[in-house]
Design a protein around this nucleic acid. Structure first.
Lengths: 139, 139
DNA sequence: CAGAATCCGGAAGGATACTG
DNA sequence: CAGTATCCTTCCGGATTCTG
């Protein structure tokens, strides 16, 4: 998640801030942005796609997504659990067993994620070419 | 955009023969994540939706999105321009006039953005309830 | 008008070490 | 096995000031 300001301090009235704060309450923190913010978290997409195939244990996820440190993986899982997108099931045993699984809410987000993936795969080439052209014009 | 590590050029190869770094090149920086990263930028969603209604001048955008500082608005517009999602047209005059407009590529992204918006509006309630429940269990 | 340049606090994310 | 705790670096995003 980017450093999105939680909620503006009540009386922090700077010169031009009044309308800005009110606006943010309406738009910057609107549902769309909140969801985009969560989906934009570095490892959320990968975790969601990984769990789309079915429940997985912590270790499995860690091996499937080696790029994520255990700190980031855990943080990502915790946030998604808090948002109700996945469930965490602890099985007391020796050693402990923890399974993660998408909730119905999490499953309902998959089509959206797939829409992004489809657009990305089809258009990333154009984006790259646009970047090259832009950078060529002026570094 | 989050601090997503830039990754070297594409070197498609067998999935399992690759090291951790190579894995990141394939997945952490895959098209989906690159697009999610850009869409997750704090003001990208609002700018895109604002320009969905047609071309706008810099000042209009600034007034439409008062939550964004000039720096962030400009930075957002520059990045979207670099990615080929919008065009920037400077009309030499006194004073200068600059218009921003979605490119066909940018327009093609709107349905995806709308899909996110639709999901968000329909499910943000569940997310909020899930959070309350989670926080109630343990702060 | 439409920005560029600068300073700054703080959040994000990674690496490492330790634990029930 | 599945985390927690800690430290550290990067850099995002806001505020302010200056310019063609």
């Amino acid at each position: 998640m980017t450093a999105r300001t939680a909620v503006p301090p009540p009386a922090a009235a700077a010169p031009h801030a009044e309308s800005r704060d009110a606006y943010q309450a309406d738009c910057a923190a609107c549902p769309t942005n909140r969801v985009l913010d969560r989906m934009g978290d570095k490892w959320v997409g990968l975790v969601l796609k990984e769990l789309a195939g079915g429940p997985q244990r912590y270790g499995e996820l860690a091996r499937s997504i080696p790029g994520a440190s255990q700190k980031m993986l855990t943080q990502t899982l915790r946030r998604l659990e808090r948002d109700g997108l996945l469930s965490r099931t602890v099985t007391p045993a020796v050693p402990v067993r923890v399974d993660y699984e998408l909730t119905p809410l999490g499953l309902s987000l998959l089509p959206v994620l797939n829409a992004v993936t489809r657009w990305a795969e089809q258009n990333i080439g154009q984006v790259d070419r646009a970047r090259e052209a832009y950078d060529a014009r002026q570094g």
